[in-house]
Write a protein that binds this DNA or RNA. Structure first.
Lengths: 255, 255
DNA sequence: TTAATAGTGTCTATGAGACAGTATCAA
DNA sequence: TTGATACTGTCTCATAGACACTATTAA
């Protein structure tokens, strides 16, 4: 384990031996998680309220859940993101994807910092909010509202915007929305989820053809419903990764 | 970015003030750049050889150009990547895109470290290698060879593989290869570049139609050539960003 | 029978792939 | 005229979008 080296020590005027290059001042390293779900026919994101009355920056403001990498607890960045998620939602194995990183001298008033942002998709059913040790409050917010009036702490509004763009973009050609539903789900439910995320209607017949052709769903028996024809229930054949629908620029026969 | 309570503080009975949370051990923060070009009809990547005979890890191995974020020189991560690129190639404004980040307790023997990886596309013509202060040597390598026998320092083979996948994937539906050519370039040259990156032939007629329809090229006069019909020269209308070709899942009329 | 939702059939326009053809230069 | 490369026209077929149709349940 890395010993606690003097982090803010400046490089000496004469070039130090290379083995001491690691004595440069180090930026803070954090991980933030953009946690999405679909609730009440709207895309929502989980935020935590920063504490008031302490020495911490952005008191009282809403922010993405996250925090410093703990070199003792976290074996890698993904594990750190998973820990943050678990602390806030008690969801242990959601869809989790790296979004990007944001680092600069000014994004955190405490000094040069870099955050590794992840985004997660969790089914509404699994939600069970837990107030973290350092979070005054935890709540779901409608993404559309947040995009209209960006008021998050630090550069989190920018991170959120990037996450939404990435999600909306990938939804066009992947099976990602399936990770927003608890299994078993029906094709109409899945279609509704696509429509909520995309913000527009989708043709039913084409949607069904496309989903079946992508061959990532498994029939799991009819689901009872009230007063109509019962729909087929499905689950994912492989929950570890989404499926990509065909792109352009490919030769006729093969892929 | 909610800070946790001081995890590394030894057994203090009363919780320390939150403002001391930043005294946690910090991971190293580095930036690495995957620099691509097309040379001799092959996709190549720039590598630097790590010094031998010092206390640094991976002596003598080839690695991606990169290094520690310098909190005094670099205003943000992108600026740091730009600096690394400039130090090695003297190219100042290439196409530069964030690739992702890799961080873990074990990827660097010196301790917990996180690197922010970028990838750059530069025209062959602009190449002018410069030996950096910390690089015993700098050279271009064929990507296909490196993917077959991954022997790079740290986890750089993994980063390279991700970069190549990202590049090949985006080439299918963007104008990225245009950033690998010096202006003015011709459509046959551009097509060749697409074919080199994709590793397969592309139909001429369809290619031309697609490029013209994307409306990102500007005619700049015929280019002289030897003993045949002179081709039209083009340059990019906007060098700041690539163009995306149409995707699927979109309604008839609009976009 | 009706209401409601699940699911299917079918027509058509678009557009990409394949490939044959024409254009323009130098020798 | 020939060879070489630049560029264009055209046929065809797969498919996505649009929308009307049938299926299956409960009341």
């Amino acid at each position: 384990m890395a010993a606690k080296t003097p982090q803010m020590k400046k490089a000496s005027a004469t070039p130090a031996p290379r083995s001491q290059a690691i004595d440069f001042p180090r930026p803070y390293t954090t991980v933030d998680v953009v946690i999405f779900t679909v609730l009440d026919d709207a895309l929502e994101v989980l935020l935590v309220q920063r504490p008031s009355g302490t020495m911490e920056p952005c008191p009282g403001q809403w922010a993405l859940p996250g925090g410093f990498v703990n070199v003792d607890l976290d074996v890698d960045l993904m594990a750190c993101a998973r820990r943050k998620l678990l602390e806030k939602t008690a969801v242990s194995s959601p869809y989790l994807e790296q979004l990007g990183s944001w680092g600069s001298a000014t994004r955190d008033p405490r000094g040069w910092s870099a955050t590794h942002a992840y985004f997660a998709l969790i089914p509404t059913q699994d939600i069970q909010l837990a107030k973290g040790a350092n979070a005054a409050d935890v709540a779901w917010f409608k993404v559309d509202d947040l995009l209209k009036r960006p008021r998050l702490a630090f550069d989190h509004s920018e991170i959120l915007q990037t996450a939404v763009e990435r999600l909306r973009s990938k939804v066009e050609y992947t099976s990602l929305p399936a990770f927003l539903l608890a299994e078993p789900f029906t094709l109409p439910q899945l279609q509704k989820t696509y429509e909520v995320v995309l913000g527009r209607a989708v043709d039913k017949s084409g949607f069904r053809t496309r989903m079946i052709a992508a061959d990532f769903l498994e029939e799991v028996g009819f689901v009872e419903s009230s007063s109509n024809r019962p729909p087929m229930g499905y689950r994912l054949k492989d929950r570890s990764a989404p499926v990509f629908f065909p792109r352009t620029f490919s030769p006729r026969g093969g892929d």
